[in-house]
């Protein structure tokens, strides 16, 4: 085995280098983009939480700051911080430009 030998340089015929990794739009990339931003978290029950996304984990457990709870368009509660258990989450939507 001789894995250390690099392939012979051949600048003329080698394919162009792959383009730099652009934003692939994956869920992970989206989440990296929205941490620290205002978001709307809707639960499967239809209740909305609007606030600043502090952080989240692989279960979609979410920590929100300056949270407002909305039910049918009415603000029903305010929380300084809120932990939302991920299994209840329907979606996380950006509420300001990412």
């Amino acid at each position: 085995m001789d894995e250390s030998t690099p392939p012979p340089p051949d600048h003329n015929s080698s394919p162009p280098p792959p383009p730099p990794v652009t934003v692939s739009g994956s869920p992970t990339d989206f989440l990296k983009g929205v941490v620290g931003k205002r978001v709307i978290v809707r639960l499967t029950s239809g209740v909305d939480y609007r606030g600043i996304l502090s952080c989240l984990d692989g279960y979609m457990n979410i920590a929100l700051e300056q949270t407002e709870e909305h039910v049918n368009g009415f603000t029903t509660n305010r929380y300084g911080d809120a932990f939302i258990r991920g299994n209840n989450v329907l979606y996380i939507s950006a509420a300001e430009p990412i």
């Binding site: 639960l43 949270t67 929380y79 300084g80 911080d81 809120a82 932990f83 939302i84 258990r85 209840n88």
Partner: peptide, 9 residues
């Protein structure tokens, strides 16, 4: 559990 909110810090 749906939500847990700690006391305001």
């Amino acid at each position: 559990v749906i939500l847990v909110s700690p006391p305001s810090r």
